[in-house]
């Protein structure tokens, strides 16, 4: 497996799994506008996943399609960040997870827009435009809910504490990331941390939330070692293709 294929799976699987998580809100969100916003966010993310996984399949050259990669792989073959497979818990957790990811994704897409691989640059330029709306919305909501009622503040702080140990994985380079960064295909992941911290600190200050002191970071998603939550998610997401292989409509 080449570094390029691995790197593309990480982008594709992370957007795919987060898209599925966010889509679980469809029809259940606390207000109609939020329901629509979450569904649209999920849709944009699945569009990004299709492009990343489509390119991954092309790079692999084994005759697989983006759909094959999404529906016919098992847990250990997924390369998404652990952060995005965490359950939704409540609206506060969902928005906090989105904000932590959106701030990373916005920076990542801006860098990838100048990738030495033209195909990656084209996808990133396309995705960055949509992602800008996600980034703005999740930050606004974290501030509104963090600096909201006693109840909403407590829920946002508890969400932040719960997700914090999953932040580090987004910035920790392994040999795949290092190889891609050396060729100018991906940015150096560690270099995204300072601008991410700067923006996140501003958001949390406005939201009156306290950023946890711990630097502990769970690792594993990028190498296929997942939490039990991903298996349950895939059971739902892949059910149709597993029950009726090759089904189309």
């Amino acid at each position: 497996m080449t570094a390029l294929f691995e790197g593309l799976l990480r982008l594709g699987d992370t957007t795919l799994i987060l898209s599925h998580r966010v889509s679980e809100w469809c029809g259940h969100a606390p207000a109609l506008e939020e329901d629509i916003a979450l569904a649209n966010t999920a849709l944009d993310l699945i569009g990004q996943a299709q492009m990343w996984l489509g390119l991954a399949a092309e790079v692999e050259g084994a005759g697989r399609s983006a759909d094959d990669l999404a529906y016919l792989r098992d847990v250990w073959e997924f390369r998404n960040f652990l952060l995005v497979e965490r359950p939704n818990v409540d609206f506060g957790h969902t928005i906090m997870r989105q904000c932590l990811f959106d701030q990373w994704n916005g920076l990542m897409l801006n860098h990838l827009s100048g990738s030495t691989d033209d195909r990656i640059a084209a996808i990133a330029q396309k995705a960055a435009k949509e992602a800008a709306y996600h980034t703005e919305r999740s930050a606004d909501l974290v501030i509104a809910l963090g600096d909201g009622t006693k109840e909403s503040h407590a829920r946002m702080q508890s969400a932040l504490d719960a997700f914090w140990p999953y932040v580090g994985e987004m910035f920790t380079a392994d040999p795949v990331d290092t190889e891609l960064a050396r060729d100018g295909v991906f940015p150096d992941l560690a270099s995204l941390r300072a601008p991410w911290d700067a923006r996140i600190n501003e958001i949390f200050a406005s939201a009156t939330l306290h950023k946890p002191d711990s630097a502990f970071a769970h690792q594993g998603g990028k190498s296929g070692k997942h939490t039990e939550h991903l298996g349950h998610l895939l059971t739902t997401m892949q059910w149709l293709q597993r029950a009726y292989p090759g089904a189309t409509w």
Binding site: E33, I36, A37, N40, T41, D44, Y133, E136, R137
Partner: peptide, 13 residues
């Protein structure tokens, strides 16, 4: 503005 997201991905309310 009611919401930056609307009835289709391209629209706001």
């Amino acid at each position: 503005r009611i919401s930056q997201f609307g009835s289709t991905p391209c629209k706001a309310q």
